[in-house]
Amino acid sequence: MAKKNVTIGVLAIQGDVLEHVLMMDDVLAKKGIPTKTVRVKTPEQLEKIDGLIIPGGESTVMSRFIEEKRFNKKLIKIIQDKAKNGMALFGSCAGTIMLSKSSTDKVVKGFTQALLELMDIDVLRNKYGRQQESFELDLTIQGFGKKSFPGVFIRAPIIKTAAKNVEVLCRTTEEIYAAKQGKLLAVTFHPELTDDTRFHELFLEIVLSEK
């Protein structure tokens, strides 16, 4: 496939934006694509991109900002419209919560928040509890071959259930850690906190796939 000049953005309202930008830039350079990853906060910036990474962070804060009217438009509406028109999205941890169609909280019952509702998955927030339960675990990812992927889980959610049209990339008996649906990619851990660029490479492939 011919290489296209694509622009990838990281939603920069809150979270570990820099880590995603550095890793994505690294992947773009490696694949010979001359563009740089951009930070995205405004509708104008959103209009220009082909792929959006929603970073790790506090999903409550992101929810609050995307549903508020800002620059005369709601960011949530623009992201949803762009996704329908073929923009690829990649969520890590909080980003996965944002992509899901429903989320519940393990600790505080009855908690609700605004979500993008793009992916047919149900997410359980703070599955393992608070920070002291955060952990590292090597994972086997479908399609990544034998070499395991370093999973860094920080106050991580899990994907509780996924619809049939969702391709599960990593799971244990009752928990899903990584999934893909069309041009949407969701992981409950933080590839951007490691040196392993395979998820960002996969995302670039998804962005480059026919529109």
Binding site: G15, V17, G57, E58, C93, F135, I154
Partner: peptide, 12 residues
């Protein structure tokens, strides 16, 4: 990594 990572998630 997990401890510094926690702090990274609060950025911004």
């Amino acid at each position: 990594r997990v401890k510094r990572g926690f702090a990274r998630m609060t950025k911004g």
